[in-house]
Measured scan of single mutants.
Amino acid sequence: NNDALSPAIRRLLAEHNLDASAIKGTGVGGRLTREDVEKWLAKA
């Protein structure tokens, strides 16, 4: 759900042209964290 994304995470996803639904969030309530996105980028 994009409503649950912080502005910083939205920007990070946009910079790398990523789809938030492709990344499993580990934050509160399954929210994406910066670490989630960075780990996903490291694997890609």
Rank of each mutant, 00 (worst) to 15 (best):
E38Y: 15
E38F: 15
R31M: 13
A8P: 05
I23M: 10
T26L: 05
E35L: 10
N1E: 14
A4Q: 14
A20G: 08
T33R: 06
A20S: 08
L5R: 04
N2Y: 04
K43T: 11
N17S: 08
L5M: 10
T33M: 05
D3M: 08
L18C: 03
A14W: 14
I23E: 01
D36E: 03
P7G: 07
A20R: 06
G27L: 03
E15R: 15
L41D: 00
I23F: 05
A42F: 11
I9E: 02
G29V: 03
R34N: 08
E38L: 15
D3S: 10
G30W: 00
E15T: 11
T33N: 02
G27R: 02
P7Y: 05
L41C: 04
R34P: 08
L32Y: 04
S6D: 15
A44Q: 14
N17M: 07
S6N: 07
L5T: 06
R11K: 13
R10H: 06
W40Q: 06
T33I: 03
L32N: 00
A4K: 10
H16W: 07
A20E: 08
R10W: 05
L5E: 05
A8S: 11
G25F: 02
N17K: 10
T33V: 04
W40M: 10
N2D: 14
L12K: 03
R11V: 06
E35T: 08
G30H: 04
W40D: 02
D19W: 06
R31T: 14
A4D: 14
S6Q: 06
L41K: 01
S21E: 09
I9D: 02
A44Y: 15
A42M: 13
S6M: 06
G27A: 04
A44E: 11
G29T: 04
V28H: 09
R31N: 06
D3Q: 12
L32T: 03
W40R: 05
R11G: 05
S6A: 09
L13V: 03
L13C: 03
V37Y: 03
G25H: 04
A20H: 07
R31W: 07
K39D: 10
A8Y: 14
A8E: 15
S6L: 07
P7S: 09
D36Y: 01
L12V: 05
P7W: 04
V37A: 05
S21M: 10
E38I: 15
W40Y: 15
A22I: 13
L12F: 09
A22H: 11
A4E: 14
R11D: 09
K43A: 13
V28S: 09
L18M: 09
A14F: 11
R11P: 00
A8G: 08
V37L: 07
T26V: 03
V37F: 05
A14Y: 12
A42Y: 12
T33H: 01
S6G: 08
I9V: 11
T33W: 01
A22P: 04
A8D: 14
R10S: 05
G27M: 03
A22Q: 15
K43E: 12
G25M: 03
N2H: 14
G27D: 02
A4L: 14
E15M: 15
V37Q: 00
R34F: 15
I23T: 01
L41E: 01
A4V: 13
N1K: 12
I9A: 04
N1V: 14
G27T: 02
E15A: 15
R10V: 12
L32K: 01
E15D: 11
L32R: 02
R11W: 13
T26R: 03
L32W: 09
P7I: 11
D3Y: 02
G25A: 07
K43H: 09
A4T: 13
R34I: 15
A42H: 09
N2V: 13
N1W: 04
R31V: 13
H16G: 02
R10D: 04
V37R: 00
L32A: 03
V37T: 01
G25Y: 01
G27I: 02
V37N: 00
N1P: 12
R11N: 08
G30N: 06
E38G: 04
G25I: 03
R31S: 11
N1Y: 03
K39N: 14
D3P: 12
L5N: 05
N1I: 13
G27F: 04
G27Y: 02
A22S: 12
R11I: 07
W40E: 09
R34K: 14
S6F: 05
D19V: 08
H16P: 00
E35R: 12
I9G: 00
L41F: 07
L18A: 07
L13T: 00
D19P: 07
K39A: 14
G30F: 01
D3E: 12
R11L: 09
A42C: 07
T33E: 03
L13D: 00
A22M: 15
A44W: 15
N17A: 07
D19Q: 09
W40S: 07
S6R: 05
G27V: 02
A20I: 12
R31P: 02
T33F: 01
K24H: 10
I9Q: 03
N2S: 13
S6W: 10
N1T: 12
E15Y: 15
R10P: 00
L32H: 01
L41I: 14
E38W: 15
W40C: 02
A22C: 09
R31K: 13
N2A: 13
L13Y: 02
A4I: 14
K24A: 11
E15H: 14
G29K: 06
T26K: 03
R34D: 10
D3A: 10
A22E: 13
E15L: 15
V37K: 00
A8W: 11
L32V: 13
E38V: 13
A14V: 06
K43S: 12
D19T: 09
L12D: 01
R10Q: 09
T33C: 02
I9P: 00
D36I: 01
A42G: 07
R34S: 07
G25T: 03
G27S: 03
N1M: 11
L18W: 07
A44H: 15
E15F: 15
L13H: 00
E15S: 13
L41N: 01
I23N: 01
P7E: 15
K43I: 12
D36L: 01
